Lab assay of single mutants.
Amino acid sequence: QEEEKEIKRLAKKFNASEEEARRAWKKAGGDPETAEKILKKKG
């Protein structure tokens, strides 16, 4: 599933848990760029 792959990639890229990545993904409405910004800010 595309979403799961994206979440795993985000978690790995930002050294975050999949739970954090999933939360960022949901907050971003499934937009990878926005999710990255959220995780970057958090990191």
Rank of each mutant, 00 (worst) to 15 (best):
1 Q>P: 14
1 Q>L: 14
1 Q>E: 12
1 Q>N: 13
2 E>V: 10
2 E>I: 12
3 E>N: 10
3 E>I: 14
3 E>K: 08
4 E>M: 10
4 E>F: 08
4 E>H: 07
4 E>Q: 10
5 K>P: 08
5 K>E: 15
5 K>L: 13
6 E>H: 13
7 I>L: 04
7 I>Q: 02
8 K>F: 09
8 K>S: 11
8 K>G: 06
8 K>D: 08
9 R>N: 08
9 R>E: 07
9 R>K: 10
9 R>F: 06
10 L>K: 00
10 L>W: 02
10 L>M: 06
11 A>C: 07
12 K>F: 12
12 K>S: 11
13 K>A: 09
13 K>C: 07
14 F>C: 14
14 F>G: 02
14 F>S: 03
14 F>T: 04
15 N>D: 07
16 A>L: 11
17 S>Y: 03
17 S>W: 02
18 E>T: 07
18 E>S: 04
18 E>H: 07
18 E>R: 05
19 E>K: 08
19 E>F: 06
20 E>L: 07
20 E>G: 02
21 A>T: 06
21 A>W: 02
22 R>T: 07
22 R>W: 08
22 R>F: 08
22 R>E: 05
22 R>M: 06
23 R>E: 15
23 R>V: 11
23 R>K: 13
24 A>C: 03
24 A>D: 01
25 W>R: 02
25 W>G: 01
25 W>M: 07
25 W>P: 00
25 W>T: 02
25 W>V: 03
26 K>L: 13
26 K>H: 12
27 K>Y: 10
27 K>V: 11
27 K>T: 14
28 A>G: 06
28 A>H: 01
29 G>A: 11
30 G>N: 04
30 G>I: 00
31 D>M: 04
31 D>N: 10
32 P>W: 14
32 P>R: 14
32 P>G: 06
32 P>Y: 11
32 P>T: 13
32 P>C: 08
33 E>N: 10
33 E>T: 09
33 E>C: 10
34 T>V: 14
34 T>L: 15
34 T>E: 13
34 T>H: 09
35 A>V: 06
35 A>I: 07
35 A>M: 05
35 A>S: 03
36 E>L: 04
36 E>K: 04
37 K>I: 06
37 K>H: 09
37 K>T: 05
37 K>N: 08
38 I>E: 06
38 I>N: 03
38 I>V: 04
39 L>D: 00
39 L>K: 00
40 K>G: 10
41 K>I: 07
41 K>A: 10
42 K>C: 07
43 G>W: 14
43 G>D: 10
